[in-house]
């Protein structure tokens, strides 16, 4: 009896890292992976299948999903409302995210370089993080109040300094700009914190070495600060860009896509197609188009992280 056990032990002795713990990590990781499969991956795969089906479950004659090939995608690419939302996304993502990242970078560097007292720096960092902690929907409500065309604080203050104010929320580009301002208020903190952390981790000796060699401030910025921060700036940019794909709450409360449907963004339009027109196949196709855009951005992110090496 004991010989059998010994030889068994001998056999399993070879090449297994801390033998008895082979199962432990799988037991630890398993529940999380299964959960992610159940609440995220599984539903998404089903929605991928749905995107190739016609399914309008709310219509009076209820019907099962019926396969219609790439019909939903074909519809999508001829639908003007989708293209409008895509153009809005390009404007919102291109201008809004760029402003957020550049502003965040400038603020982070100014805060690190030109505010000497650590307590003030930390206090300001905390203040700048406060908007991120507030529900986007609530932030939307607050900005809606501020931007009311008559009686809103923004136009009110513009009026006090002799400006007639702007018809916020009453045109496509002003509406999108209003969304951008509200989102900037809420999220500049993210690039700001990332860049601030990056700047704080550049060793002073790098700058001292440059100063000894007579490099000007501008040269130090060009040759040290920017190269050291460029990966983080890219990451901040892409993180915010991914969020732009998901942009929903503030749009829902501030403009509701209006006037008309002019300020819709892709996620909001998907919501309309899915939950107000109940055309589930089309909505699923839309989510996958948005998802693929997101994945492409993600791959960019991945490649950047791998080639630049840091983080």
């Amino acid at each position: 009896m004991s010989t059998t056990r010994d030889s068994l032990q001998e056999r399993i002795a070879v090449n297994i890292p801390i033998r008895r713990e082979k199962l432990t990590p799988l037991l630890l990781v398993g529940p999380a992976l299964v959960t992610v499969f159940l609440v995220t991956i599984g539903p998404m795969l089903w929605s991928l299948w749905l995107s190739f089906n016609r399914w309008t479950p709310s219509s009076i004659t209820y019907q099962e999903p019926t396969f219609n090939g790439i019909g939903n995608f074909a519809w999508l690419f001829t639908e003007g409302r989708f293209w409008d939302s895509a153009i809005n996304f390009v404007y919102y993502g291109g201008v809004g995210v760029t402003v957020q990242v550049l502003l965040g970078t400038a603020l982070a560097l100014a805060l690190y370089n030109y505010v000497e007292r650590r307590s003030v720096r930390i206090g300001l960092l905390t203040l700048f993080a406060v908007p991120m902690m507030i529900a986007p929907l609530v932030a939307g409500r607050i900005w809606q109040l501020l931007l009311l065309p008559g009686g809103g604080a923004v136009n009110g203050i513009l009026g006090m300094v002799g400006n007639s104010g702007l018809p916020w929320l009453q045109s496509r580009w002003l509406g999108l700009t209003a969304l951008m301002i509200a989102d900037t208020w809420q999220w500049v903190g993210l690039p700001l914190l990332i860049i601030y952390g990056g700047r704080a981790s550049i060793p002073d000796s790098m700058y001292e070495a440059a100063q000894v060699n007579g490099a000007s401030r501008w040269m130090q910025f060009r040759r040290i600060t920017l190269p050291q921060l460029q990966t983080l700036i890219a990451i901040a940019f892409i993180l915010r860009f991914m969020d732009a794909y998901k942009f929903f709450d503030k749009l829902f409360i501030i403009t509701r896509g209006g006037p008309g449907t002019q300020t819709e963004l892709p996620t909001f339009y998907t919501y309309i197609v899915g939950f107000s027109e109940f055309n589930i196949g089309r909505a699923a196709a839309l989510t996958w188009v948005i998802g693929l855009g997101s994945i492409l951005t993600m791959l960019l992110f991945w490649r950047f992280m791998n080639t630049e090496g840091s983080v």
Partner: peptide
């Protein structure tokens, strides 16, 4: 060995980047 090169945990994090509407649409019916 359960997370070679950090790929598994990064993949997990990346599911968070997917637009939530892609999840909630099927979930609503499920």
């Amino acid at each position: 060995w359960v997370d070679p090169g950090g790929h598994v945990s990064f993949w997990l994090l990346s599911t968070r980047m997917f637009p939530p509407v892609a999840v909630v649409l099927p979930i609503f019916f499920i």
